[in-house]
Simulated scan of single mutants.
Amino acid sequence: MTDLTHSVDADRALKAKHRAMWASGNYPELASDLISSLGPVLVEAVGVRQGDRVLDIAAGSGNASIPAALAGGTVIASDLTPELFDEGRRQAAERGVELEWREADAEALPFADGEFDVVISCIGVMFAPHHRVAADELLRVCRQGGRIGLLSWTPGGFVGQMLATMKPYAAAPPPGAEPPPLWGDERHVRALLGDRVNGVELTTGTVTIDRFATPDEFRQYFASHYGPTIAAYRNVGDDPERTAALDADLVALAERYDQGSDGGLVLEWEYLLLTARR
């Protein structure tokens, strides 16, 4: 087997693993329950308008794609995990908009150079393992003068710290894979895009999560809904001590970030919002 064949086979296996991870649990319900406000924030920031050709990369069930269509865009929602599309189609029909749903790897987009006026990703492209490759692809498919909008969890914010908390319990990442929250680090994302964009604007914001009564309720929800958490639990599933330790670490994380004063759990999840022109 040549090195190239081995590399291609390894990449296919990795992407199959990622697809299975995001198809586990119930990410569409999580997105609706917790972060439905973020898609409209991104769409407004990047200025989607009537007639724009819009690509949403790693769109999931359409948290940003559907608001982009509501704003008048002609939208393709692309994702490595097409199992997420059914709920997106249902929500789009409920809200009276049409868009195209396409299975697509963020690191090998099946679109022409400069095909889109607007390229966006809301908590999506950050999970592609090879950041430079994904950045090159999102820039390639955006026309000159087009707009780019990215919303990503920050390394120091709650979700960045949750992913760091789960890392010791998860399977080791493959060589060359980079941590997702680096997309929420200003220096990293500026380096990825470089001088291929202009008019870069970066802001941080937070989304308030107050639907959980206790830290353990938060832990149970993520253990049943969120692919990366499910994968971490599966990885230590035959070790009761490590499973208990993961339980305790996730509860402690929620306790550390809790800003509630009336007995309910209140978390502020920080994100980085980037807009730029190609």
Score class of each variant (00 low, 15 high):
L84T: 14
F85P: 13
F85N: 13
F85H: 14
F85S: 14
D86A: 15
E87R: 15
G88T: 12
G88H: 09
R89A: 11
R89W: 04
R90I: 14
R90K: 15
R90N: 14
R90E: 15
R90H: 12
R90C: 11
Q91G: 04
Q91A: 14
A92M: 07
A92P: 07
A92G: 10
A93V: 01
A93K: 09
A93M: 05
E94Y: 04
R95F: 07
R95S: 11
R95N: 09
G96T: 11
G96R: 06
V97M: 09
V97Q: 08
V97D: 08
V97C: 08
E98S: 13
L99S: 06
L99A: 04
L99W: 03
E100Q: 15
E100K: 13
E100V: 14
R102K: 13
R102V: 15
R102T: 15
E103A: 15
E103Y: 09
A104P: 09
A104W: 04
A104T: 10
A104Q: 10
D105T: 11
D105R: 08
D105N: 15
A106M: 05
A106G: 14
E107M: 14
E107S: 09
E107A: 13
A108P: 03
L109C: 02
L109H: 04
L109R: 03
P110Q: 09
P110G: 11
P110V: 09
F111K: 03
F111Q: 03
A112D: 14
A112K: 11
A112T: 09
A112R: 12
G114K: 05
E115P: 00
E115C: 04
D117W: 02
D117G: 08
V118T: 11
V118D: 03
V118N: 05
V119F: 02
V119A: 10
V119N: 02
I120T: 12
S121N: 07
S121V: 02
S121C: 03
S121H: 03
S121L: 01
C122M: 07
C122Q: 11
C122A: 12
I123H: 00
I123L: 08
V125K: 01
M126L: 06
M126H: 00
F127T: 02
